[in-house]
């Protein structure tokens, strides 16, 4: 990749959109991204910094930044807010214990000035697991109905099976394009 590539992905361009993938550690951000790029997800390890991928969808170029979600590095999410066109927030639908935690983080993001008005796609991931909450339940738990200042969409998906990811991308491309 190199530093030059990082700079190129900072460029603001009409033909490209910049997506940020955020969420708690272990929610499945990197796996979702890899699955979208048709890569093997079995070797995924906790992201210590960030991953960048360019994904083409319906002729539209998406520069996707997948940012590490461990608590210690969550304060640095702000590094990446500038010029973000779309936000993807990934949730581990089976981790009921951390629902409040992820809700708090999401609420904080919604209050960020640099992200004001940016469309959000909530990925209710890990639907392949038996105890996964449905998208509707996740929407309730997160209180998504109180988001009135921007468009949002919730998509049930599984990075393991790939289910739901394409639809999610389609919505994003439609919304951003």
């Amino acid at each position: 990749m190199g530093l030059l590539t990082l700079l190129r992905k900072l460029k603001r361009s009409d033909k490209e959109a910049r997506l940020l993938i955020l969420g708690l550690d272990n929610s499945g951000k990197t796996s979702c991204l890899r699955k979208l790029a048709d890569e093997d997800i079995s070797q995924t390890t906790p992201t210590q910094g960030f991953n960048i991928k360019t994904v083409m969808s319906s002729g539209f170029k998406l520069n996707v930044w997948d940012i590490g979600g461990q608590k210690a590095i969550r304060p640095y999410w702000q590094n990446y807010f500038e010029s973000t066109d779309g936000l993807v927030y990934v949730i581990d639908s089976s981790d009921q214990k951390r629902l409040q935690e992820t809700s708090v983080e999401l609420n904080q993001l919604l209050e960020e000035e640099k992200l004001s008005g940016v469309p959000i796609m909530v990925l209710a991931n890990k639907q392949d697991l038996l105890n996964a909450l449905s998208a509707k339940q996740i929407a309730e738990e997160l209180g998504l109905h109180s988001i009135r200042d921007r468009t949002w969409q919730i998509q049930a998906c599984s990075a393991k099976t790939g289910e739901g990811l394409q639809q999610g991308m389609e919505w994003l491309v439609n919304t951003l394009g």
Partner: peptide, 13 residues
Amino acid sequence: TDTNTTPTIGFDK
């Protein structure tokens, strides 16, 4: 008219 819509599972305004 947008003839290429995707199912809305969310909110738009």
